[in-house]
Simulated scan of single mutants.
Amino acid sequence: MLKLFKGLMKTRIVTEDPRTWGESMGRGLPQIDMKLCQKDCNNCEAVCPVGAIAGKTVNSRLCIYCHACREVCPVGAIGETEVPVLTAPASAEDLGRALREKIKKICHRSLHIRYVDAGACNGCDFEINSMTNPVYDIQQYGVDFVASPRHADMLLVTGVVTRNLEIALHKTYEACPRPALVVAVGACACGGGVFKEAYASGGGVDKFLPVDVYVPGCPPTPAQIIKGILTAIGRL
């Protein structure tokens, strides 16, 4: 661990280098090539920890992008979809500029977000927190995280909704002024993730609230979450 910290100190980059945003977008969604796939082989379905593969089709909302299916495929029939690349500085600036313009036009110059952890492992939470660091600095575009749902235009919800947090999630949503946008962040919020079969799990957010945008991933990157917010604003 000390060696890792020493390496980070030498690079002078303590979070993430904007020049590598293209690589930070994460893995692509597994994609099955039916021309190569063996019909009598179900290795991919058997190995998937979240049951995201059914009928040789990958459910993007359930997938946690572990790519275990690719490793067990005997004929190499599973590839991955291309991930949109954010090459700095042009594309990163374009993303921020588009977000600022939409907030200015639709949300009267500011977007207030209430973040709700409905039973996450904190992986997605760390990525949401990263959006406010000096690298992404989402607040420069007019985005503010608020403590009260009464001031919120949007809810960012992470985690599989646990039984103990069902009522809290409903009360948070009901306290939001209308129209209130709901963005499900991460595989757990989108479809239950690896915890969907747990005794205390209620499932994805859409079982309890109307979801406007899903941001799948385990966890999704800050850039992907920002794109999800941008998409949600367009639905107002």
Rank of each mutant, 00 (worst) to 15 (best):
K6H: 02
G7M: 02
M9A: 05
K10C: 00
R12G: 07
R12I: 02
R12S: 10
I13S: 12
V14T: 15
V14C: 06
P18T: 15
P18H: 12
R19K: 15
T20E: 14
T20Y: 07
W21N: 08
G22E: 14
S24F: 05
M25T: 14
G26H: 01
R27V: 04
L29Y: 01
L29E: 04
P30W: 01
P30M: 11
Q31K: 11
I32H: 02
D33T: 00
M34H: 11
K35N: 15
K35L: 10
C37V: 06
Q38V: 13
Q38W: 02
C41Q: 09
N42E: 04
E45Q: 15
A46H: 07
V47F: 00
C48L: 04
V50W: 02
A52E: 04
I53K: 07
G55R: 14
K56R: 15
V58A: 02
V58W: 02
N59T: 05
S60N: 02
S60W: 01
S60G: 03
R61Q: 13
R61E: 15
R61T: 11
L62A: 09
Y65W: 13
Y65M: 14
H67N: 13
A68E: 15
C69P: 10
E71R: 13
V72L: 05
G76W: 08
G76M: 00
A77M: 12
I78R: 05
G79N: 06
G79H: 06
P84K: 09
P84Y: 13
P84G: 12
V85L: 04
L86T: 13
A88S: 06
A88R: 07
A88D: 11
P89L: 10
G96I: 01
R100I: 10
R100W: 10
E101T: 10
